[in-house]
Every structure is written in C-alpha cells, then in structure tokens.
Amino acid sequence: MSNGSFPPTPGRLRGALVTVAVVAVVCAAGWLAWYALRDDGGRDAGAAAEARHTPTGSAAPHTGDTGGTGHTGQTSHTGSGQADRADDSGTSGNSRKKPLKGMVVVIDPGHNPHNNEHTAEIARQVDIGNARKECDTTGTATNSGYPEASYTLDVSRRVRKLLEAQGAKVVFTQDGDRRYGPCVDERARIGNRAHADAVVSVHADGAGPGNRGFHVIAPAPVHRGKADTSKIVAPSRALADQLISRFGQATESKPANYLGGGSGLTVRDDLGGLNLSTVPKVFIECGNMRDREDAARLTDAHWREQAARGIAQGITDFLRG
C-alpha cells in the first residue's frame, strides 16, 4: 500500500552514503582525541598523587645492625628515621623491642616457702669459701605473718615477666618447686653454670622497728678456698648502683636509715651466694618487714609491682651499659 513517497534515485543514495561516512569519520576522530586526553590526564593525576606522597630525596630504608659486648649489653642503632618505621617488621625495630635478647639473667628468690618444714636440712653447714655457714634459713616475716619467702617469689616472678618481655633469658634458682633451699652454695653455682650476665637475689630484711628503707648488698673482695670475687667486685658494684637508683625511683622508697650511711649500699664478705659467684651478683633487701611502714608497702600488690619494675629496670640499665 502506498504512503505517497517516491523511491530514492541513484544520485540521492550516493549523497546519503557520503554524508554518513563523513559523520562516522568525524565521530571516530573526536572519540580518539577524547580518549587520548583522558589517558594523559589520568597518568598526570597519578604522577601528581605519587609526588605528593613521596618525600623529596628519600632513600631506601636502612635496616640497621645490633650487637652486644660482654656484660654491658650495648646495642648499636643506625638510620633512626627509617629504622623507626621498620619497627613492626624490620630487624632493627625488633632489636629495639627486645634490647636484652641474648642476655641471661638469674633471679634468686630468697629462702623457700617450704624451708620451715625442713629445718634439719637447711641447718646443714656448707662451705662459703672463707667460712662455713648454714645451707639456708627460713627468712623473716611481717608482724602479721606475711613470709619473706612469699614476698621474694612474688616479686621475682614479676621481674621475670618484665625481663622476658625485653628478650632476656631468665633462670630461677627456685620457683617454690623444691622441698627446701637450694643451699647458698648451690644458688651461686646456678648463676655460674648459666654464665649469667647478672644475678640478683631478692630479699626483705628483718631488722627492728623504726629501721626502714631498702639497701643493696655487693660482694667484698674475697680470695680464700673456693671463693674468688676479684673479677666480679667491680661489675657487681655497677649493678648495685643501677639497682639503688632505679628501685628508689620506681618505689619512691628511701635508702635504709640503719646501715650503709644512707647510701643504700653495703658490702659483705659473709654471704655464700656472693662469695662463690663468678658472675656479677648482688642482693637487694627491698625493705624491713618488721617495720610497720615498710611492711605496709611490702604486703601491697601494687607496690610489689613497682618494686619489680625498679629491679628489672636496674638490671636492664646495667646490661645495656
């Protein structure tokens, strides 16, 4: 059925085809130009973003190196800016998080909670080099009955946790897991066999009321029989000095007012644990259990945590030189 139009002539058909071709070429050229501009713009934007996040003149991260020397435990760090950013995965960052890695610390919790059940055994005499002395004692207690042996174990376990967190290998002479003791000569041998970088024997004193404060006991020069402290007197004194400083700061305690001339330091030649040691070793008497003020601190768990922190920090300072 007709709609009133006429079929196209050959001339009209050619003209229409030419028009379509021209339009197609123009569109293709426009599309190509737009795509090229978009691509260049994307690359320029990416380069600009990269430039914004890359510091000028930055260098490749430096991993740094670490090393310990003898009992000082000195650690060397280089490239502080880049190394700080490597803390989560870089070698240098891990070394700083574990400053005592490779160090051995022996903690000697004074006495033993079971000593009072084995009085005959702990009364046995042992050789301490310049004399003979009882194997061990029961230790003292507060007037309310809190035993020194319980205090020393609690604080020593807290110290162990802090030191292990810094990478140290911590050895105990006893952990409440022995029938009694060990005897004072064996306590010394445990530190010697471990080739300890430092040994600290944890105690609390049993002096009269009104005598309060802490003190650290360092070995005197002893050269007799099995005892020869000549090589450990100086490093033990350095360990003592660090403990006095850090323990006082952490606990806000004052040095003992009844010995040591207020210095917090005493030197003795009658303790087998010191006489027979071949590695740096000291005793710390954290307070007087027989004094009401000191006893209130010694029986407080929060204060014991502060005491442990002071001991751990003193050991750390000594080992790091």
Rank of each mutant, 00 (worst) to 15 (best):
L271N: 03
S230R: 13
C286V: 06
M289V: 12
D241W: 05
P221L: 15
A234I: 04
I284Q: 02
D241V: 10
V282N: 09
P255L: 11
S230T: 08
L239K: 13
K281S: 13
V282H: 07
P209V: 09
L276F: 04
D228T: 06
K231E: 13
P280A: 06
T229Y: 14
V279T: 05
L243D: 05
N288K: 01
D269K: 06
K281W: 08
K254V: 12
V267N: 13
V216Y: 08
G287L: 01
G213R: 01
A218M: 10
D241I: 11
A240G: 15
R237I: 09
T278R: 03
G287Q: 03
I232A: 10
V282A: 06
G287D: 01
D270V: 02
F214T: 01
E285Q: 00
D270R: 07
V282P: 05
V222T: 12
L239P: 08
F283G: 00
G261H: 09
G260P: 03
G262A: 02
G287E: 01
P221G: 07
Q242W: 15
D291W: 15
G261W: 10
N211A: 12
P255F: 11
P235R: 07
M289P: 03
I217K: 00
G210K: 06
A220H: 15
R237E: 13
L243V: 13
I284A: 02
D269W: 06
L274E: 05
G225Y: 13
G248P: 04
F283T: 00
G273T: 05
L243Y: 04
Y258M: 09
R237L: 11
A238H: 14
R212C: 13
K226D: 14
G273A: 13
G260D: 04
V267M: 12
K226T: 14
V222L: 08
G264M: 05
I284V: 14
G210D: 12
P221E: 05
T229D: 09
V233W: 09
R224C: 06
C286N: 02
D270T: 04
A234P: 03
A218K: 12
C286T: 11
G260K: 02
E252M: 10
S263N: 13
L276H: 04
L243A: 04
V282K: 03
A227F: 07
V279W: 01
P219Q: 14
F247P: 09
R290T: 11
C286H: 01
R224S: 15
E285P: 00
A234Y: 12
T278Q: 03
F214A: 01
L265Q: 14
V282L: 14
A256Y: 10
G213V: 00
L259E: 05
S253P: 06
D241L: 11
K226E: 12
L239S: 09
